[in-house]
Amino acid sequence: MTALLIGIAFGFALERAGLGDSRKLAGQFYFTDLTVFKVMFTAIVTAMLGVFWLARLGVVDLANISVPETYLLPQLLGGLIFGAGFVAAGLCPGTSCVSAATGRADGLAVVLGMFTGVLLCGAADLGGAALYSATPRGSETLPQLLHVPYGVVVFAVVAMALTMFMLAERIRTAS
């Protein structure tokens, strides 16, 4: 039930931002519309600060929140491939579901293409390939990797995001 409610709020937020519209997302990669970057980094900073302060105040225990597993090489290569597909499709997996739900046929095409791609990967047993399991780092985090306190990395991410928001606003006024 939690999953369904969180999903509804997730889909609602994506649609409100305009992220069901492939042209709006594609604009990110031609510097004509930076909504993707702004929404994504505002969300990351909000959730990152929330987790950091709730943990510091003892409201949540970080041990109870699962951190995505790191596999350096597959995630570097997978990311590059994913990005290429993203700009061709104009939507990512989550936003394609929103797009299809609002009646956009290209959103539905992305959903079907994505499903076909995943099916082929399963049939080809990509998960059994040596590359898939290469360079595992467990649930490593940036503070652990860099040997820097959690709060310092949080501060650096906030500073970087604010700098990039300021640059993003200048690009918008320039165009």
Binding site: M40, A43, I44, A47, M48, V51, I65, V67, P68, E69, T70, Y71, L72, P74, Q75, L77, G78, G79, L80, I81, F82, A84, G85, F86, A88, A89, L91, C92, P93, G94, T95, S96, A109, V110, V111, L112, G113, M114, F115, T116, G117, V118, L119, L120, C121, G122, L126, L131, Y132, R137, E140, T141, L142, P143, Q144, L145, Y150, V153, V154, V157
Partner: peptide, 29 residues
Amino acid sequence: GGGVMGLGAVLARGCTSGLALTGGALLSV
């Protein structure tokens, strides 16, 4: 593009939601 993203997401074990947003906020490498 959807098909290519499917390959990338399977290889990377996630997508914009599960890796970029979630992993980004949790500072996952």
